[in-house]
Amino acid sequence: MSNKDLNKAIENLFNTTLEVMESGKEEIKSMVIDLKDDYARKVMELSDIQQKLLLTIEEVDTLAIEEKRSRKRLAEVSNDFKRFNEADIKDAYEYTHSLRSRLEIKRQEERLYIKRRQELELGLKKMLHNIDKGEKTIDKLAKIAEYIEGNKKDFNETIEDINKMQMFGIKVIEAQEEERKRISRDIHDGPAQDLANVMLRAEYCEKVIDKDMEDAKSEIRELKKDVKVTLNNIRKIIYDLRPMSLDDLGLIPTIEKYIEGFKADSDLNIQLQYSEGIEGLNSGIETAIYRVVQEALNNIKKHANAKNVSIDFSLMENAKKNIFIKIEDDGVGFSETHYKEKAESKSCGFGIIGMKERIEVLEGKFSLDSRENMGTVIKISIPVIEEGRLN
């Protein structure tokens, strides 16, 4: 896509975004208006409920006084058979009962009014919150639209960087998912299986310890071996996540330790050289360098069919201090066409492209020179940032 087409596409994108935002703003305005209308109706209903509640409270108070008098009258009539006959008692009882019924009805009305008043007050409070939230959202959308409208050129100029960051983000996510899968697989195939075996051996020991002590002791010895193996496997998984020696020993000793272990699992002859002063780097830089060396060696082991590898660390003093890394092998190498195909392939993983992007994030430079049957050379330079100064 040409720059002209790209700018036009961006212009259309901005216009569409602004239209969507304007449409959303109008919808929110309509919702706020409806909320305000509903709020006004609820306020009127609350006022009506409040008036009815006050009248009902007065009626309840009046009925309560009257009911108390009627009960007193009923007691008086019921205890004076000389002055009052059966008809008088019946009338007094029925009147008292009628008052009680009316009082209970009014009290029920009072409770219902109070409940409704509470519901309305709570609803009105929520409506005010939503109205305020809606109006603030409208203001924010207006400001965002104004900002977008006034900064289209800036967006056009940075679109390429955004695309790069997006692709890098995808690569990072893919790498994270692959790492999670690897960790899950390592735990499932390693410590999880080992611990299941430990459980079975422990249960067996429980069964035979009272019957055959020697067998139980033998089983416990084997159990200790299993636990030791499991512990070593867990330590290896932890080390692969982030070598603690980076914090304890520093970059070069950690890489030396990794190379020794790597040589034990491969036929590669790996030579490490470094100059003095490569220490005290920012932890983020140290981790990136360690991962790049790790990835480079794994690529060489899997694909290069090499016999010898040299890794060289040095410091360069230019306008500012840089650490320079050179990783060279004598393997089969590959053509530039093959490299481009791998770079454009979605299946290339985090390998070479990932190494390059790791370095570029640190404002460093990454180059790769390879020819068929002539090996591969990776050159890296990174600005030196002391620990605690990387933003």
Rank of each mutant, 00 (worst) to 15 (best):
K125V: 01
K140M: 09
D247I: 03
A175E: 13
Y258S: 07
K140W: 07
E109G: 03
F262K: 15
A319P: 04
L249G: 05
E336R: 15
R102N: 10
A175Q: 14
K36V: 01
I325M: 10
I114L: 06
I131H: 00
I148G: 07
I148M: 13
R371N: 07
L368H: 04
G364C: 04
S70Q: 12
M165A: 14
F350P: 05
S245G: 02
A92E: 12
K152R: 14
E135P: 00
D247A: 09
I144V: 09
I65E: 14
M167W: 10
E149V: 00
E386A: 12
K340A: 08
N322R: 13
M355L: 01
I148W: 04
F14D: 11
R102Q: 11
K8E: 14
G280I: 04
E286P: 03
N7Y: 11
Q51D: 10
E279Q: 09
A145F: 05
S314I: 01
Q273C: 04
L223Q: 07
K82P: 01
T337K: 13
V292I: 02
Q176K: 14
Q118W: 03
L122N: 04
L241E: 14
Q273F: 05
Q193S: 12
G277Y: 06
V292M: 05
K321S: 11
E328M: 09
E59D: 15
R117D: 02
D248F: 10
D369P: 00
E86W: 05
E219W: 02
M167F: 13
D330K: 14
K115N: 11
G24I: 02
L281I: 03
R291T: 11
A306V: 06
E372S: 01
F313Y: 15
A296F: 10
K136Y: 08
L315Y: 11
E214R: 15
K152N: 03
V227F: 02
D212C: 04
I237N: 08
N232E: 11
D265G: 07
M127E: 00
I234H: 02
V377Q: 10
A264L: 15
K164T: 04
F324R: 01
Y93K: 05
I187N: 09
Y204Q: 09
L368V: 10
N232P: 03
R69G: 05
K36Y: 00
E66Q: 10
E336A: 15
T158Y: 13
T337H: 09
R117Q: 06
R291W: 08
S184I: 05
N12D: 10
K68R: 12
I159K: 06
L223N: 03
I300P: 09
I138M: 02
E178A: 15
K126N: 09
N299R: 05
S70T: 03
E104A: 13
E76V: 04
D186F: 02
L390T: 02
L128M: 07
N15E: 13
Y204E: 07
M127H: 01
K257L: 11
M213H: 04
I289C: 02
I352R: 12
V332Y: 04
K68F: 11
E135A: 06
R102E: 11
S47I: 03
A92V: 03
L251P: 06
E149W: 00
